[in-house]
Amino acid sequence: MKMIACTEGRSDKIEAFSLEMIAAARSVAAAGDEVVAFFAGQAAKAAAASFGAADRMIVADAAGSDLIPAETYARLLRDAVTAEQPDLVLVPYSANGLDVAADIAARTGWPLLSYVNEIKRDGETLTVVAQMYGGKVLAECVVKLPAVLMVNPGAFAEAVPSPIDATKIQQIDAKTAIESAKVKMVAIDVPDYADVDLTTAERIVCVGRGIGDEASIDIARDLATILGAEIAGSRPVVDNGWLPKLRQVGKSGQKVKPKLYLALGVSGAPEHLEGMSHADLIIAVNTDPKAPIFNVAHYGATCDLFDLVASLSDRLQAPPGR
């Protein structure tokens, strides 16, 4: 069996989930199987220095393009798939992967499962566990090969980075695909982390849509101040303009690992968990006892968040020794 593990990078760095895709492929590989890492982008050197867990690597080196649009990535991958005839293509659930996975599935006609957490091999088929309904339901599915899987970041432990032997690297031409692309990158905006850097915060109070409205953010902000914590938000809170973008935690926000993460009215969608599930101490308050945030919380409470914030602020504000 041959597996292609899709990997990514921006600027001169590889994305950490690239090593997870290689590990996921390795986890189903038997003796004699082949794991081929596919990389398209500018960080070809970094990829070669890290992807030693793969048996081979196909590289579309796009020197000078900080980021390859998914359309171009998918086209290059398509060529590799045609040439290699793999049994399995693993694509990360990333901004790029969202466009790549179904594109390849549509053009090959192969099965596709998304939001995959577990892969097991049973002879010629795979048993795959995928998330549905914002992580509230798990689907165990039987998938025939060849197939495409879009794998959740964080579902597999990273392969140990090591250099890959130069003789195992095959370069493919990226230039033609980049030049003829219908989608061209014109700008990358990287935020200025000088104001707020949640990634180094020791304590975070995160509000979700359960906070209800903009005015109520202040209540949570006051609690954060008492706790010496940074205030953060889930995506809808930031989308509504109630908190600045730099305070978003999750897939398209920041990945944080504080000593304390207090989640108020956050459901715990996979895209949110991706940003915070490694925090040391997670306390979740949500009126829905089935909210997936409780699957990662160390302590969970199902009371109204406003009641809790009021009671907790009261107690923490009281002078010591009262």
């Binding site: 499962l113 509230k136 339901v137 006892p289 409780f294 699957n295 009021a310």
Partner: peptide, 27 residues
């Protein structure tokens, strides 16, 4: 794409502790 063999709800709570729904107690 696949045959869904089984849907299930994720194991509830993981190893976390349930503090209940009384705000005063929880605080």
């Amino acid at each position: 794409s696949a045959e869904i063999r089984e849907l299930r709800l994720p194991a509830q709570g993981g190893s976390g502790e349930d503090l209940g729904n009384d705000a005063e107690n929880v605080a």
